[in-house]
Design a protein around this nucleic acid. Structure first.
Length: 570
RNA sequence: GGCGCGGUAGCUCAGUUGGUUAGAGCGAUCGACUCAUAAUCGAUAGGUCGGGAGUUCAAGUCUCCCCCACGCCA
């Protein structure tokens, strides 16, 4: 038994995420957390909402609400949807929590004490009408290069030229439309990541077992161009964590806040403090402080590839640079993107399926199974309704669900709704136990290595073994000549239903729970000994024929959904 | 333009440190069975492993060049 700290990249607050976001971090993290718990490990699985920054402010403004209220509401919405997908966070926190405020300010102070913060004076576009500095992308004007009239301050979408807001002709604020802009001087804090390049690189190099995707992105940023760059960690905004040097004011930084990328990962730690505050735990430090026991913790992070630089470079700079004994990540599992039917999911164009919509259509397990068995581990993968339909119908309805159905219904009709008595297992049964044992050990190996697709394949193969066995021993035939033989075969098959429920639970927790309930099973201990696990339901043990565990997706539904989600949400 | 991940049977993908006849699932075809959600099980299907060159006794698996897709950066 070990202790595992697991975090999923924290989703941004402004709206409901689509399936691509889900499969890229939260869902695989949940799978891993559930698996480790099932194996008896102590797990702390944390996630939060990432709430600071300009997009949140603008989304709140659009909704006509104070930003704090907006974030509180959206946090609850995201929490409810996460619950709908059965994401088993031990705590779902908020980066705007008081804990994160204090901790972020603490880290800034610690980094400053280590000489890793420098102050930089720079000029930025200020909008009088909006009463604020504008991030480059919120300024538009005519491109000096191609004449495109809606070029953004950071880049022209037409000719792709990189721009500076001052280059734009007739620049205006996209927030208010105002042209009353001026370049103003402002002071900001930079984290001197360049000082830590060697230390970070040595650390990355020591992680030979990380996914190629993770290390290749990290190394690119370490060695590209002039190497690891210092990064601004403050912004001229209202909504965020006020800049402080620990718990004392930072002269000249009044009215400024930390930039989201700085405070967001720190929320991983603050979330553990929130977890304690919420009464769910009593010692966050033993998970996060190596001087308080966290050396025994294995920390695994899950994220999409766009988040890799922050987790391999920026956040480690914060942790290591503080000079304090904070727990550093042990393994980073990163994912490629999930595309939608030939293109990208698009939040702005409403293209693809969003988390709330998915749950309106079908139960969480359908999505969990398909998404996890197609998770973009080695390269981008693609969601199509055809693939989803066949994947769900074949694997869940035909192979697993129908197995439970055929066994329980046969037993009810030939014997009763109780595990039948009599008969003795023979060679074929011993072979089945051996095969299942080998397959389940393989499954465990893939789960421990977080090879999710391979784990799904192994799990499915275990399900198939039940059907193979039934087909071969044909209890419907043996029943006619030797009912005790049939009883033994069905008794074994009934136990297999229970076994399948236990090992499948990390992927499809609701269906697993339903099957366990139908089998009137008590407990769901992991089958360390498969032979023993297949004798847990004894002769005479009553069960209930389960309802259809997985109904099939019809062609009509598939067509309707394909059209409905093609684009333009609301 | 630079960099990164890929380009393997109709589709989705596996293919360890190079080594006997390149694999799985789905789809398709044929067969078996009839307990079950018209479900299941079995067999078959011959893909120049993106293209070219090279290293090697031996390359999908290493080197170089090119093409394509996606992404990141400039």
């Amino acid at each position: 038994m070990a202790r595992h700290l697991i975090t999923s990249a924290i989703p941004y607050i402004n709206g409901i995420k689509h399936l691509g976001n889900l499969v890229g971090s939260q869902l695989p993290a949940d799978l891993y957390a559930r698996y480790l718990r099932a194996r008896g490990h102590e797990v702390l699985f944390l996630c939060s909402t990432d709430e600071h920054g300009t997009p949140a402010e603008l989304a709140a403004k659009k909704a006509g609400k104070p930003v704090a209220d907006y974030c509180a509401e959206m946090h609850d919405v995201q929490a409810e949807i996460a619950n709908g997908f059965r994401l088993s966070f031990d705590h779902f926190g908020r980066s705007s929590s008081s804990q994160n405020h204090k901790l972020t300010q603490h880290f800034a102070g610690a980094l400053n004490a280590q000489g890793l913060i420098r102050e930089v004076c720079e000029t930025q576009m200020y909008s009088h009408a909006d009463g604020r500095f504008l991030p480059d992308r919120y300024i538009e004007g005519t491109c000096p290069n191609c004449g495109f009239d809606s070029a953004r301050g950071d880049q022209c979408d037409n000719c792709t030229k990189q721009l500076d807001p001052v280059d734009l002709i007739n620049p205006h604020s996209t927030i208010s439309g105002s042209t009353d802009l001026e370049m103003r001087e402002t002071k900001h804090l930079y984290l001197r990541q360049s000082q830590m390049k060697d230390q970070i690189e040595a650390w990355i190099d020591s992680k030979a077992d990380w996914p190629i995707l993770t290390t290749s992105i990290a190394k690119k940023w370490l060695n590209d161009g002039d190497g690891l760059q210092d990064r601004g960690i403050t912004r001229d905004l209202d909504w965020g964590i006020p800049v402080m040097d620990g718990d004392t004011p930072w002269p000249g930084m009044e009215g400024k806040v930390f930039y989201v990328w700085f405070d967001a990962p720190i929320e991983y730690i603050a979330c553990a403090q929130e977890w304690v505050e919420a009464g769910k735990g009593d010692d966050w430090a033993r998970w996060w402080r190596t001087d308080k026991g966290a050396d025994d913790v294995r920390y695994t992070q899950f994220m999409g590839k766009d988040n890799v630089p922050f987790h391999t470079l920026s956040f480690p700079c914060t942790i290591l640079g503080s000079g304090e004994p904070w727990k550093l990540v042990d393994y980073i599992k990163s994912f490629n993107y999930l595309n939608y039917d030939g293109g990208q999911f698009s939040t702005s164009r409403g293209r693809g399926v969003f988390m709330d919509q998915a749950l309106e259509i079908l139960p969480a397990d359908y999505w969990r199974w398909w998404l996890l068995s197609h998770v973009p581990e080695t390269s981008d993968s693609e969601f199509t309704w055809e693939s989803f339909q066949t994947g769900v119908n074949k694997d869940l309805a035909d192979v697993l669900g129908n197995f439970a159905s055929r066994v329980t219904k046969f037993c009810r009709s030939k014997f009763s709704e109780a595990v039948p008595e009599g008969g003795v297992r023979g060679e074929r049964e011993a072979q089945l136990v051996a095969d299942l044992t080998a397959k389940i050990r393989e499954y465990e190996g893939h789960m421990e290595a977080i090879e999710i697709r391979k784990a799904a394949t192994a799990l499915r193969a275990a399900w198939v073994m039940g059907n193979e066995y039934l087909q071969e021993v044909a209890p419907w035939s043996t029943f006619k000549t030797d009912p005790e033989q049939a009883a033994m075969q069905i008794r074994l098959a009934l136990n297999m239903i229970r076994l399948y429920a236990v090992i499948s639970a990390p992927f499809i927790p609701d269906a697993a729970a339903e099957l366990l309930e139908a089998m009137h099973a008590e407990g769901a201990e992991w089958p360390e000994d498969v032979a023993a696990a297949l004798e847990i339901l004894p002769e005479g043990h009553a069960f209930t024929v389960p309802e259809v565990t997985f109904r099939k997706i019809t062609d009509a539904e598939r067509e309707e959904w394909a059209e409905r989600f093609a684009g333009t949400r609301d």
